[in-house]
Design a protein around this nucleic acid. Structure first.
Lengths: 190, 190
DNA sequence: ACCTGAACACCGTTCAAGT
DNA sequence: ACCTGAACACCGTTCAAGT
């Protein structure tokens, strides 16, 4: 389990090991001590490379979001992109155990200029013709929907219950579709 | 802080004290030990009244959902009810510190007959004319949207960031409106 | 029936000290 | 520069024992 090899410990190796640990044990059992022992090191050693556990979770969340953006190339009508991004985001949450819960808890890792970050979030939709405030609304809505949906999916007993009473996958698709269509027909305001 | 008075310790008093503790210290610091000391008792005493911490969180989550349903009387067009319920649910999440995170983690507290529980969830919308599967889709979509939205809101640094780049309250309203309108115009399928 | 005391197996984080 | 050892102040939960 613990490979003492390759002592070169850095942030990337740390994040990778954290994902492996997450897959094996889940978010509740992802501890600095267990992570350290997987890396063949004592827990305090991690704090040389990272400020605290919250920073580690933030880096992990960023990777989950990045994977979703990578899966949704910017092309076509903005509605198509938004639907595609919604699907990709849910897949990305689901690809990692407790992915949605992790992203709900994680703090945004870049405390840099908020306006610049907002531009980056809005970028795919502004590139397809939306103005920035509308782009941010669409992103916030789709991201919230996907995060909420996968939060239930990631909750074991809740998922079991939901899977018994409805087709959870098909329903996500329908809900996402409804949301995007609604956003497209919203009354234009200030 | 610790009131040793009134030794009658039961589930209701326990849940009430847990909410008070949540308000003061947040979900991360809501521990069985702190809760016990607030009740003037040792931690193991709690386990006489409750199976484990997860059950306690489940009871708390149920109360949060119940408050939302209580705030949305069943009347008018189903779309109006759904919008109203969405708003009420977000308010209910926001009314308790870390309310959304709590509900994301909590397990459904009633391991009773799933079909009967589904009927109860769908009830407000079936009463207003929707068939059950459509009602469940609408509920799942709106609940997911509200939960996701408030998860970000409940995340301190994330909220600060979002509040700087958009009008988070007005955007919720617009997003919810879009979702409900989209659900109303969905193509009818099996 | 309801609660305590003591214990088990853990946490995140700090910090002097080692190399 | 990078890591260890020891410690601090915690966790959830179990269980014999008290009343």
């Amino acid at each position: 389990m613990a490979q003492t090899l390759a002592p070169g410990l850095d942030r990337d190796r740390l994040v990778a090991a954290a994902f492996a640990q997450l897959e094996e044990d889940g978010l509740d059992r992802l501890s600095m001590r267990r992570l350290a022992s997987r890396l063949g090191v004592q827990a305090p050693a991690l704090y040389w490379h990272i400020g605290d556990k919250a920073e580690l979770l933030g880096l992990m969340a960023r990777e989950i979001y990045a994977a979703a953006y990578a899966d949704a190339p910017i092309a076509g009508h903005w509605q198509d992109w938004l639907r595609r991004f919604g699907r990709a985001l849910r897949s990305s949450f689901a690809a990692r155990r407790d992915g949605a819960r992790l992203c709900a808890v994680a703090r945004p890792p870049t405390p840099t200029d908020p306006a610049a970050h907002a531009d980056r979030i809005a970028a795919p939709l502004t590139a397809l013709g939306l103005d920035e405030s509308r782009a941010l609304l669409c992103q916030a809505a789709v991201i919230s929907f996907a995060l909420g949906w996968e939060s239930f999916e990631a909750n074991g007993p809740m998922r079991d219950f939901l899977r018994e009473i409805m087709d959870f996958d098909a329903s996500f698709e329908k809900g996402l579709d409804a949301l995007v269509r609604g956003l497209a027909t919203a009354r234009e305001e200030t």
